[in-house]
Design a protein around this nucleic acid. Structure first.
Lengths: 143, 143
DNA sequence: CTCATTACCTAGTGTTTCTATAGGAATTAT
DNA sequence: ATAATTCCTATAGAAACACTAGGTAATGAG
């Protein structure tokens, strides 16, 4: 079954939360975890990955926390997927032909490559700002 | 990590093999398993699902086996995915809002729905015949 | 009419991946 | 100094996945 991992779901929600609550000061994991109802310990492991990818940067210490590493317009959803789950690889043979003994005989590789391109380009063209904008419109409407 | 299951990979290869070797007689799992280098026992479980979905029909007995249930132009890849792995459901909340306590507060659902639509429509518009045609062209070129 | 061959069925098992937790070390503002 | 935070390694529990075992039922061939 094709699924989006909880790691990605949590990371997206956290990034959106940071984007929508920017005040110049970093937000701590404690606060993000509380608001988003996510285990703080689990968030720690995710934010390490986000930081390595440059999507957030951190400050340590007693008023430390995280801020976005780039503006929301410059963060593609593809980057978030890549940071948390690694390269998108619907099937091994599409990326690494040597992984399958039937490479060359098999008629499905082109289909998988095309499907993967379709997915990647969708994830690349939608950006964090798109989701945030939609959310802000919803909130404005409710007021 | 977003992955295509081996069940789907095996099913696709098997259906392509049947489509490309049609002679009026059904093909047995034994032959499909041998040619495609897939465990026959595992294929049995997959073909049950394909049969329930109407993608193949079977004949028992000593010269029994499987044939396509429809012409390759009428078999969408979406149907194959659905038959083997069940409904496409990238996240539970997109299909079943009650599954998450944050439904209503959460800003990501629309994105997931759109992503899922994008995926589904791609799988629906590509058909078994598309893959078979590409394969036949490749074979003709090699001759 | 018997036999070989095939699809069909239920159950279970080992492996891997995913999700989450434990316990602490390093850093920094107050 | 102290309290709050990020950062790091390791590991455990749970769930999904891939595959196997062992047998029954149907059907055409001889």
């Amino acid at each position: 079954m094709i699924k989006i991992s909880t790691g990605i779901r949590y990371a997206l929600r956290s990034l959106i939360y940071i984007a929508m609550n920017y005040s110049g000061k970093p937000l701590s994991l404690k606060e993000i975890a509380r608001d988003q109802e996510i285990s703080k310990k689990y968030l720690e492991s995710l934010f390490r990955l986000l930081k390595n990818a440059g999507l957030v940067h951190s400050s340590k210490g007693s008023v430390g926390g995280y801020q976005l590493g780039k503006s929301p317009e410059d963060i593609t959803i593809f980057e978030v997927f890549y940071a948390i789950d690694g390269p998108i690889n619907l099937v091994d043979c599409a990326t690494n032909p040597a992984s399958c003994s039937r490479t060359g005989k098999c008629e499905t590789i082109n289909f998988y490559k095309e499907m993967q391109d379709n997915l990647s380009s969708y994830l690349t063209k939608t950006r964090l700002s798109d989701i945030v904008t939609t959310a802000e419109k919803k909130i404005a409407f409710l007021k």
